[in-house]
Simulated scan of single mutants.
Amino acid sequence: MATAADIAPGHAWSYRGAQLPSSRVVIGRIDIAGATTVASVSIVDAPLPDPETGALAPRLVEHAPIAIEALLPSLLRREGDAPIPDGFDGGYRVWRNAFDAGQGGFFTLGVEEIVRMFQTALAPQRAAH
């Protein structure tokens, strides 16, 4: 299992339960948030629903803050370095401002569970007839 010393901004990792072989976690920032260390990550090629069809397609989760205790067991293998994706900095700033104001939190789920949560939340809603 990865340790906190193994991860740094710019590292790309494969993760447990990835539904697409190309899906990776890219570490963007690591912060101390109160008593918890939080890794802010992007999830590249996350299989998320197309808003129109609902079909799963590789998409980018620009920013997800995850408690380090939840992230580390998810990480399988470091796959080298990767650029921090466009959109990460804006998402990070919005989260950090909300967190500092007492209005933002962080995930305590593993990466696979976070992707599944996004799949459910982003699935097109069908109108009842």
Rank of each mutant, 00 (worst) to 15 (best):
M1I: 08
T3K: 13
T3R: 13
I7R: 04
A8W: 00
P9F: 03
G10Y: 01
G10I: 00
W13I: 09
W13R: 04
W13M: 05
S14G: 12
R16T: 12
G17Y: 04
Q19A: 14
S23H: 00
R29I: 02
R29Q: 15
A33G: 00
G34Y: 06
A35F: 12
T36S: 13
T36A: 12
T37C: 13
S42Q: 04
I43D: 05
I43N: 03
V44W: 03
D45A: 11
P47M: 06
L48V: 10
L48M: 11
D50Q: 06
P51C: 14
E52N: 03
V61F: 05
V61E: 10
E62A: 14
H63N: 12
I66E: 04
I66N: 02
I68L: 15
E69K: 10
E69G: 11
A70P: 02
S74W: 06
L75W: 07
L75I: 12
L76N: 12
L76Q: 15
R77I: 11
R77M: 12
R78M: 07
E79S: 12
G80V: 06
G80D: 08
D81H: 02
A82C: 07
I84W: 05
D86H: 05
G87Y: 03
F88C: 01
F88V: 01
G91Y: 08
G91C: 05
Y92F: 15
W95L: 02
R96V: 08
A98I: 00
Q103N: 07
G105K: 02
G105L: 05
F106M: 10
T108H: 07
L109M: 12
E112S: 10
V115S: 08
V115Q: 06
V115T: 11
R116F: 05
R116S: 09
M117D: 10
Q119N: 05
Q119Y: 07
T120A: 13
A121P: 01
A121Y: 11
L122Q: 13
L122N: 11
P124A: 03
Q125G: 02
A127S: 14
A128P: 01
